[in-house]
Amino acid sequence: MTSYALFAAVFLACLVEAVEATTIVVAAGASRNWRSALTGTVAAVVVLAVIVAAAGPAIMMLPLAVLRVVIGGLLLVFGLQWLRKAVLRAAGVKALHDEDAIYRREVAAASAAASTRRAGVSDWYAFTLSFKGVLLEGLEVVFIVLTFATNQGNLPVAVVAAAAAVLVVVTMGVIVRGPLARVPENALKFVVGVMLTSFGLFWGAQGVGADWPGSDGALLIIAPGVLVFCLLMTLAFRRRHAAAVVTSTPATGQPTTTRSVVETSTASTATATATRTEPGRLARFGLFWYDFVIGDDWQIAAGVAIALIITGLAAGWTAAWLIPVVVVAFLIPYGTARAARS
């Protein structure tokens, strides 16, 4: 991968995360206190910079084969999660990620919270809301930067690409002072999902010893192949969803809309959450990292791990690269179908 390709890959991936973080910060600043919200943002950025400075050089000292296996596996899990959500949203099965709605929800919650002063911060709620939002979204940015940079041995380019993405989104946020609703986030997530899945597939198989035909040139086939496969799957899910809506139309003649389904599901989830016992700090810490690494479908993560293990055992076979390809071709529709039923 050239420096330009590395820059583009990291820039696009970080752009999506920066949009979500900026929406939270703007909501906290506009409804509460700009100074406290920006202070929380700066504090989170400092923490993330320390993580990159500490973890980057240490990770880059690991053997390349180990890095490719770990990075490839994690990128595959991340990419399959992004693709699953993007396909379902593009097919109309799930509601689109609405920055306007998120912004209004964050503003409403921020406006209702009490104002307290702590540690020299005039509005602690605005500070913590911005800090948590930027830190959580930023952790994914850090993961993307470190994974791409360590595999290519070029941390400066990856850092500059991430900084450029954040700068672009923050500038837009300052100008509009509101949600970045015009950013085609689902389209970006679709592209980034294809990109993460493709690189994860390539590096993971390469890390366990499989040789790709054409070496790095195989990426020029893998990425378009994943894209076309997911576009065809989107069409299939869209037709199936349309048929399901028609067959489930109420007697009044009014079809059940995706919005009502989503609202009902959200209400049910909120009710279930309200009655659930709040876990302790240690449990919350563990759940956060489980959700960050594994996601909401452990079967996909298990499938990725099994695929890489089998590929490593069959690495002596010339066509061992076919094993992860077949497994991923199964996991994409399998995980998407499971998510559609939930």
Results as ranks from 00 to 15, higher is better:
R341W: 11
R281H: 10
A315N: 14
V77Y: 10
A58Q: 08
P63L: 01
P324S: 10
T197D: 06
Q299M: 05
L88P: 06
L188F: 15
V328K: 07
A161V: 01
K85H: 09
T264P: 07
Y334D: 15
G178A: 12
G217K: 07
T22Q: 13
F78T: 04
G153Q: 03
T258Y: 07
V25F: 14
Y4C: 03
S122C: 01
R182C: 07
T150E: 09
G73L: 04
L282E: 00
G92V: 03
A274V: 00
F202H: 10
T150G: 09
V246M: 14
K94D: 14
G335R: 04
I51V: 15
M233N: 04
W289D: 05
T258A: 15
L15N: 01
Q81Y: 07
W212D: 02
L74K: 05
V169N: 12
D216F: 08
A244M: 13
T39P: 03
V169W: 10
G133V: 00
L6F: 12
G209C: 10
A53P: 13
G153K: 05
A49I: 00
A319I: 03
A305R: 05
G204W: 07
S268E: 13
V169Y: 10
A164N: 02
A307G: 09
V141M: 13
P63D: 01
L220Y: 04
L135P: 08
V228C: 04
T252G: 11
R239T: 00
R259Y: 13
S115C: 09
V183R: 11
